[in-house]
Design a protein around this nucleic acid. Structure first.
Length: 606
DNA sequence: ACGCTCGCATCAGGTGGGAAACGG
DNA sequence: CCGTTTCCCACCTGATGCGAGCGT
C-alpha cells in the first residue's frame, strides 16, 4: 500500500498490539481499516498532493480516471507460484512509491528506489501509522525505472467496501472477486512487451474474526499461508504478454480472477488464487517487461513494477460476516440481483426509508456500479452507446475502453484531477526506508507518452470479463450492463450521467449537491479528499434511462461495420485524448464530437 | 436472394442465503 | 458446543443461436 512495503519497517511498532489474541489493533468504528489507515498513512486530504496545475485542467475535462492516487509499492514480487517470473523478480526488494511532482513532473520518471527487506508474498501492514508513505511525498527522483502509472479504475467502489472492511468469499471451486481489480496503465513503452499479473499477499500477520460487529484479530496468521506451498498466489492476466500499447489502450480487468481455499485444486489454477479464510490480504499489481514471447527481458532496465492499492485489501471468508458487506455486494453485484428483495423500494423509497446503502445513497455510490456505467455519458454517450460494439464483437476481457477515466470525478473546485500511482523499477536498490507516496495528479503531460495509439495491439486472448462487472462506466455500458433497463430504472433518480457534455467537468448541474456528500463520505470514511466526484444525480430522467436502455439494446445498429480493436469504443480515453490533441489516427473517428475534443484537452501538453 | 437487425429462447455461469456437515 | 466450511437452491446476467421481419 502506500508504502506498504515501507511499512514493514514500521510494522512492528504499529502492530504489536495485534499479537494479543482477539484484540483488535485498529478495527473499530465504521472503517477499521480505512479510517485510520488513510489518515495514518497520509491518505488524508492534506496529504494528497494536488498538482497546482490541476486548475489548468480544463473544466470540461472530467476526470478520466478519477482515481485517487495510490502509490504503488513496490515489493518485488517473487512469485512462488508464478514460475515464469520468479526467476527474475527480486525477492524482498521494496519499491516504495515514487513521489510525483506536482505539475511539473510531467512524465519524468519519479523514482526513488527503496529497498526493504521483506518476505515475498506478504506485506505487513498495508497501513502503518508511522512512516506513512503518503506523508512523505517524494519529488521525482528521476529513477530510470519509473515509467508506468496505474489507476485503480473502480476505486470508488472499492472504497465503499473498504469502509466496512472488504470481505471476499472463497470457495473450493473458486469465487470471483467483487469488486474486482481493474486498472488503467499509462507510461509504458508502446512497443515493449509486458506481462501483467496480480499477486495477492498476506496483508496482515493476524488471524481475524468477526466479533461484536467488527473485525478483530485473533491470533497469528498461519505462517504457511505466506509460504509457497499453499498454492497459487498469482493471477497472470490472460492477455499477457502483450505490448505496452495494448495494456494502455484499455482498462485491464481481472474480473475473472477467482479466489479459492482449495490448495489442492488442480483445475483452473491459472485462474485461481489460493487464500486462507479469515486472513487479510492485499492484492498487488505487477507489470513485468518481457520479450515478445513472454520471457522476461533480462536486458531491460525496467523489470518489474509493482503497485498496491490499500483500498483493495480484503479479508477472505467462506461466508460473509459483516452484513454491511453483504448488502453492498447485493446492491452492486449484478449477479446478486436476485437478492435485492427490496429492489424496487431501494430505489424508489425516500432515502431515509432505506435500510441499506444503495447505489444512489451517496455520491460515492454513484461511482459504483450503477452510476459508473453512465458517468461518462456526457461526452461519450453517443460514442459509446450508439457506436459501442456489443460484447459479442468485443469478446475480450478488455474489450471495453477505459471508462473510469471518463468518470467525472472532480475536485472540489470542479477541476478534474487524475491521481495515479507510479511504481518503482524493481531493480531499484535504494535503501531509503521512507515510503514515499506518489500522489501526483494525473496531468496532461502524461499523454505524450501515450501517443500514438495507432499501434495495434496483440490479439486479445481472453473473453469478456468486464461484461460481468462493469465497474467502470465504459465497461458497464459497453459490456452490456446498459441493457439492463430494469436496473437502470431503479437507479434512475440518481443516474449520474448527463445527456449532454458538461461544460464543467461533466456534471455542473449537480456538482454542488454532490460535493458536500462526497466530502462527507470521503472524510468520514477514509479521510480522503474528494478527488473524484460522484456522478451527477438525477441528471437522467426515467425516460432517458429508458432511452439509454433502448440505445444499448440497439447499439448494434450503430456499429460502423464490424468492430475492431481500433474502433473508438475500444480506445482508452487517453487514446482519444491523444488523438484529439495530436491528430492521431483516431482523431476522426473517436473525436467526431467537439465535446470529446474538449473533454480530453486536459491531456494535452501545455 | 442476400444481408442485416431484432426479439426470443436457451444455456452456462455467478450470486448470496440457508441448512447441513465438519472439526477443534 | 460453537465456529467454520460445504453444499444446494433460486435467482440473475450475459452470451449465443435461431427465426422473423425488413430493406436492398
Amino acid at each position: 500500500m502506500l508504502g506498504g512495503e515501507g511499512e514493514s519497517s514500521t510494522f512492528s511498532s504499529t502492530k504489536e498490539v495485534v499479537d494479543e489474541r482477539c484484540k483488535s489493533p485498529a478495527v473499530d468504528g465504521e472503517d477499521p481499516t480505512a479510517g485510520s489507515r488513510y489518515t495514518e498513512h497520509g491518505m488524508g486530504a492534506d496529504r494528497y498532493y494536488i498538482s497546482p496545475t490541476a486548475s489548468k485542467q480544463s473544466p470540461e475535462t472530467p476526470n478520466p480516471c478519477s482515481f485517487i492516487p495510490y502509490t504503488h509499492s513496490g515489493t518485488v514480487y517473487t512469485p512462488s507460484s508464478a514460475g515464469r517470473y520468479s526467476a527474475s523478480l527480486h525477492l524482498g526488494s521494496v519499491l516504495p512509491p515514487a513521489g510525483f511532482p506536482p505539475s511539473t513532473a510531467g512524465r519524468t520518471h519519479f523514482s526513488s528506489a527503496y529497498q526493504l527487506g521483506q518476505s515475498p508474498g506478504c506485506i505487513y501492514p498495508p497501513y502503518t501509522g508511522s512512516g506513512s508513505a503518503l506523508s512523505n511525498i517524494t519529488l521525482p527522483g528521476g529513477g530510470p525505472g519509473m515509467r508506468a502509472q496505474v489507476y485503480l479504475c473502480n476505486r470508488p467502489l472499492w472504497l465503499k467496501f473498504h469502509r466496512h472492511q472488504t470481505e471476499m468469499i472463497i470457495t473450493k471451486q473458486g469465487r470471483r472477486m467483487f469488486p474486482f481489480l481493474s486498472f488503467n496503465i499509462a507510461g509504458l513503452n508502446l512497443t515493449a512487451h509486458y506481462n501483467v499479473f496480480v499477486e495477492v499477499v498476506l496483508a496482515d500477520p493476524n488471524h481475524w474474526r468477526f466479533q461484536g460487529g467488527k473485525w478483530v484479530t485473533c491470533g497469528k496468521a498461519d505462517n504457511s499461508s505466506q509460504g509457497t506451498e499453499t498454492g497459487n498466489k498469482v493471477y497472470i492476466h490472460p492477455e499477457s504478454p502483450n505490448t505496452g500499447a495494448h495494456w494502455m489502450r484499455q482498462e485491464i480487468s481481472f474480473s475473472k480472477l477467482k479466489l479459492t481455499n482449495n490448495k489442492g485444486t488442480s483445475h483452473n489454477t491459472s485462474q485461481m488464487i489460493v487464500l486462507q479464510s479469515l486472513h487479510k490480504y492485499q492484492p498487488r499489481l505487477h507489470i513485468v517487461e518481457v520479450t515478445e514471447d513472454g520471457v522476461e527481458d533480462i536486458g531491460s532496465d525496467v523489470k518489474t513494477q509493482s503497485y498496491t492499492f490499500p483500498e483493495t485489501q480484503f479479508i477472505a471468508v467462506t461466508a460473509y460476516q459483516n452484513t454491511d458487506i453483504t448488502q453492498l455486494k447485493i446492491d452492486h453485484n449484478p449477479f446478486a440481483k436476485g437478492f435485492r428483495d427490496n429492489y424496487d423500494s431501494m430505489y424508489t423509497a425516500p432515502e431515509h426509508d432505506r435500510l441499506t446503502p444503495s447505489p444512489t445513497d451517496s455520491p460515492r455510490a454513484h461511482q459504483i456500479v450503477p452510476s459508473a456505467r453512465y458517468t461518462m455519458q456526457p461526452l461519450f454517450q453517443d460514442q459509446f452507446v450508439n457506436n459501442l460494439p456489443q460484447s459479442r464483437f468485443y469478446n475480450s476481457e478488455r474489450a471495453v475502453p477505459q471508462t473510469n477515466s471518463l468518470l467525472s470525478h472532480q475536485t472540489e473546485d470542479g477541476a478534474s484531477q487524475r491521481w495515479f500511482v507510479t511504481s518503482m523499477q524493481q531493480g531499484g536498490n535504494g535503501t531509503n526506508t521512507n515510503n514515499k507516496l506518489d500522489l501526483t495528479p494525473y496531468e496532461g503531460e502524461y499523454s505524450s507518452s501515450l501517443l500514438p495509439y495507432g499501434i495495434k495491439s496483440l490479439s486479445m486472448q481472453t473473453s469478456h470479463a468486464l461484461s460481468y462487472y462493469p465497474d467502470s462506466p465504459f465497461t458497464t455500458m459497453s459490456a452490456g450492463w446498459g441493457s439492463r433497463a430494469a436496473y437502470q430504472r431503479k437507479v434512475t433518480p440518481s443516474l449520474p450521467w448527463s445527456p449532454r457534455p458538461s461544460p464543467t467537468a461533466g456534471f455542473p448541474e449537480d456538482s454542488n449537491k454532490v460535493k458536500p456528500q462526497i466530502e462527507e463520505e470521503v472524510n468520514g470514511s477514509a479521510g480522503l479528499i474528494s478527488s473524484w466526484t460522484e456522478t451527477q444525480s438525477s441528471a437522467l430522467s426515467l425516460d432517458k434511462a429508458e432511452s439509454y436502455s433502448t440505445a444499448c439494446k440497439r447499439r448494434r445498429l450503430s456499429l460502423n461495420g464490424p468492430s475492431t480493436e481500433d474502433s473508438p469504443a475500444d480506445i482508452k480515453c487517453e487514446d482519444l485524448a491523444s488523438a484529439a490533441t495530436n491528430s492521431s489516427s483516431y482523431s476522426k473517428e473517436a473525436l467526431s464530437s467537439k465535446g470529446m475534443a474538449a473533454y480530453y484537452s486536459f491531456y494535452t501538453n501545455p
